[in-house]
Design a protein around this nucleic acid. Structure first.
Lengths: 349, 349
DNA sequence: CTGTTAGCGCTTTCAA
DNA sequence: TTGAAAGCGCTAACAG
């Protein structure tokens, strides 16, 4: 590897000063004569020059990079978000540093620190940490942070949220309307706002429908230890939960799952056990990932505009970066029930 | 946003020189007295110091960043790869810049250029471009490039490939062994090595089984224009192909699809049209993504060790970066048939 | 063990 | 319209 060519080499070759070369090559609006401009450009081409952005970035204090932290990109829910973010970032000439927290609070914190050090201009995070003021140091350093999906209580940061409570409410209400009264809730650990709100909405709906909630119907999966989180785990958890459900003495006729992956695993296992969906057990999922379509039967679920959330949050980030006045600091996206074929309408309806 | 604190501020506060501060804060092995070390560390904490890696990176010419380019992370196939890469990168203290090429050759090239400028230490790419010497300038600049999944003919770069030919062969052979003779191949455009090799293997298998391949059985989907590539497109293409299949005068009894997403869409649509899988039509997919399990029926498919490919390629990258002698420049991963329930064994077998 | 100093590659005043 | 020179934050010779 030979010494890399810099602006100085070009200056020499084009008989110009480094300053002028910089102005030409960085598309500055600064006036430079057409003649010199041409000479510099051709010199750059001749030397096969590649600008070293580290130099520029250090000088201008702008890394043209944003970071995104999600639990795991292997979950289609998050890959949709990331895709949306990346799209808007690209449109603005930025790149994105991707971090999978693997549901690990410590890892998440490390990533946050590294991003700070790498001088990202902003961070979009779906945090699984409950730590207060986790994101404080970013605002302190003038770095824009947008928290998405997981509501952060009482922190003075931008948030794009989703009404999980209402989503849980809609799911349970739908089941109630279809005549179900023995309704279970199948979920991963209630260790974060989204899931807590969901259960809350779920319970509210039952109460409103005058359905008594049997606490034995709240099925919570274990946290897998010492393993990288990925989509398979949710799916497997769904399978486990299905087995637990079938062992229940007074078996529910319907369940809502905290996400589609889990619902899909749940249905898979029920099929395998010979329990028919929706004939024997109805299932409602959450998120409406693309794959909600392909299960047998196609999954009725609560839609979450993930991709839009990604685009939206990143758009907001750039508004803030560009100094536009963003006066709304919290936005709440709305759930929508998507009815497919995994819920049975009972006769008494 | 106040002026950010630098190594100099700490030096002042701790009554030390910037050099010493640097040595302490960058965990250099350079000897510093315990006393001074302590003072510097506490000063750093007091000032809430965050190192600016841009400075270090410029100086040391090491960005501690690698790049990865894939068509789209919304495809679980690629998100698995990325997950593997990210894991190894993290273990080595590196971060990864994620780029989705959206199957766009021009975009891919731009990303490559930006990575060059951002001084990544290496790039892992599943390229959809057929351009010769696309990756040449990286080796020229001493940047390690590892091409994955898509075989690059005659380019002097590291490659981790997969035997798509053999995979196609295995799929077709399996169908032949199950007694099928009217076998279709359903694929996205044959614009890259993987697919071309697959068809080739497919044809070879038929020939070997003395089955005549009807050219009308090669169903190739259109390239969607003016839209960002994502997993939904593959799925939709699969649906379209299913409709095309049912319109064929002499309908095949079996098909192999070029990837699971497509196979899943294909099955979905057949189900909808009342064509039973595998009773009426057998289907084999490709990749063995997690979701291959959840279709109805569960998909028989050809396994691709994607996640391992990601880890492996990134491991190789670091071997090269660390100057270890990597004498194998091309590695070929092997396919494996995963039999589930989407293939019917015909009576005459 | 500690400090001085040069400089990574670039941009940007400021002066000409 | 051009150039000289300072300096972004950090590290690494080198000297002491």
């Amino acid at each position: 590897m030979r010494k890399s060519v810099t602006i100085l080499d070009i200056a020499k070759l084009a008989h110009a000063s480094p300053a002028t070369v910089s102005r030409v090559l960085s598309n500055s609006s600064y006036p430079v004569s057409a003649e010199l401009k041409r000479k510099i450009k051709s010199a750059a081409k001749e030397l096969n020059y590649t600008p070293n952005l580290l130099g520029r970035q250090l000088k201008t204090n702008n890394s043209m990079t944003i970071g995104i932290i999600v639990p795991s990109i292997s979950n289609p829910f998050y890959s949709s978000i990331v895709l949306g973010v990346e799209e808007i970032a690209r449109a603005n000439g930025y790149q994105v540093l991707l971090c999978n927290s693997h549901q690990d609070v410590i890892l998440e914190k490390q990533f946050l620190q590294t991003m700070l050090e790498k001088q990202v201009k902003g961070v979009i995070i779906s945090s699984i940490s409950a730590e207060k003021n986790l994101l404080r140091q970013f605002s302190d350093k003038g770095i824009c942070v947008i928290s998405i999906d997981q509501h952060r209580e009482g922190e003075d940061i931008y948030q794009i949220n989703y009404d999980y409570r209402k989503g849980g409410f809609m799911a349970a209400s739908h089941l109630a309307e279809c005549g179900h009264t023995k309704i279970a809730f199948v979920t991963a650990p209630l260790d974060r706002p989204s899931r807590i709100y969901m259960v809350q909405g779920f319970r509210d709906a039952l109460r409103e429908s005058r359905i008594l909630f049997n606490d034995g119907y709240l099925l919570v999966s274990e946290i897998p230890k010492n393993t990288n989180y990925n989509s398979n785990i949710e799916f497997e958890n769904g399978k486990t939960m299905a087995r637990r459900l079938t062992e229940l003495s007074d078996r529910p006729t319907a369940v809502v799952a905290c996400n589609d992956l889990m619902a899909l695993g749940f249905i898979y296992e029920l099929n395998r056990l010979g329990v028919r969906v929706p004939d024997d057990v109805s299932v409602i999922g959450f998120d409406n990932i693309d794959f909600a379509n392909i299960s047998m039967p196609p999954l009725t679920t609560v839609d979450h505009p993930k991709y839009e959330m990604g685009k939206f949050s990143c758009g907001m980030l750039f508004q803030v970066l560009n100094g536009e006045n963003v006066n709304i600091s919290e936005i709440v996206l709305q759930p929508k029930l998507v009815i497919r074929n995994s819920v049975r309408v009972l006769a008494n309806c």
